[in-house]
Design a binder for these strands. Structure first.
Lengths: 211, 211
DNA sequence: TCCTGCTATGCAACTTGTTGCATAAGCAAG
DNA sequence: CTTGCTTATGCAACAAGTTGCATAGCAGGA
């Protein structure tokens, strides 16, 4: 009961086909809301039946026709209603945190590579965000008073800043976790049950995406 | 295909009934992995059939019997296997971020209260985490070398530090978002379509959970 | 005394989300 | 000229998660 709203917002920002939406859900929007193309097509069809969106069939050169969706009045009303609804439970699922706690019942140092991989993924995403920020919000061209068109831009930037803050936090925390895991392996933790077989180099504070 | 692992970790840390697990999923573990009691009971039953956990029926005074679950060898093996599996897609869903971007197509200042509510929830959770940290990890009693029993404790602390970092980041970001929303309302953003009717006081940097 | 809330477990129905597969045409590389 | 990638949409089956309800006894307050 919420993917609809993510789609509405995306279509209000720019109309597009199901396929284009699916690609957006792999990039910008997808970083704080995931959805596969199957789900998008299904929900889009339901939204069309409910009159939330309107489809315009665009014939194309050779390729199959695409349906260009845009938000109808009913959809806009539904979004407004949702925006004013105070609900929001905030459900989180961090596999990695489960793994870290679970590592206590296995060889903790076996998790080092996994955590490093995740750290790398977050560093990559951070770099991507920062590049996007520079590109889209580099310098304010007009520093005059805000108009209604600036709201979209400003709010997108605010969400992007959230993504940047999140990735920075994750990188710092994963460095913390890595330090903890290394401490077990290197100095103190010795247990017959486990043995560290691959002494990987310490990556402590090697790189750190700055700005 | 992952709630099983959260349950295994929780049961390894301490055996318990389905009900107790459900309560843990409202507290400690629940902050990075949500699950309702229905889900837990169902999964627990499947895990018992698969030989991952063993149930010991404990008769109680008057109340219905409870089943004390503990992890069996097969379950431990399953956990180990999962821990060594390098998968991890990291799927995130932030309703609030969708709302913030959606606010561009409604009155942005109408979202202020909602964001404030979320900020409060994160501040509360942070306070709860910090209290738990002080209670459980206040001062190291033994500063000697690590034994295998310390791994559990240390890794739980590392995960808790992640939760603390997350809440701090969220509070800072929501303050950022609030500042953006206030800018629209107070000074620059004037649009016939919307009007701010309730001039709520500016909560900028009123409180800030420190440490 | 009745009403609410807590412990404790569970079924049934429903909604969401995932995975596998199918179609179909163009375009580029080998 | 065949193989694989990209655009573009969709069905069907399955897995996971949510919601509503039911049971049942005991404890504490109105």
């Amino acid at each position: 009961m919420a993917i609809e709203h993510a789609i509405l917002v995306s279509l209000l920002e720019r109309p597009g086909s199901g396929y284009e939406l699916a690609r957006r859900f792999e990039r910008s929007i997808g970083y704080f809301w995931t959805a596969t193309h199957q789900q998008i097509y299904r929900v889009l069809k339901r939204m069309e039946n409910d009159g939330w969106v309107e489809a315009l069939v665009v014939p194309q050169h050779g390729r199959p026709d695409k349906k260009q969706y845009s938000v109808a009045d009913l959809g806009r009303a539904a979004l407004t209603s949702w925006l004013h609804d105070p609900i929001e439970p905030e459900t989180v699922r961090h596999d990695l945190a489960v793994k870290i706690r679970g590592a206590a019942f296995d060889d903790p140092s076996a998790l080092i590579r996994e955590v490093e991989r995740h750290r790398q993924a977050h560093a990559d995403r951070l770099a991507h965000y920062l590049a996007g920020e520079e590109r889209d919000f580099g310098r304010r061209t007009d520093s005059g008073p805000y108009g209604p068109d600036d709201a979209e831009r400003e709010l997108q930037h605010a969400v992007l800043r959230g993504g940047i803050a999140y990735e920075r936090m994750m990188i710092a925390w994963l460095d913390d976790v890595l330090a903890t895991l290394h401490r077990f392996r290197d100095d103190h933790f010795r247990d017959d049950r486990f043995r560290a077989d691959a002494p990987s180099a310490d990556p402590s504070s090697a790189d750190r995406a700055a700005r």
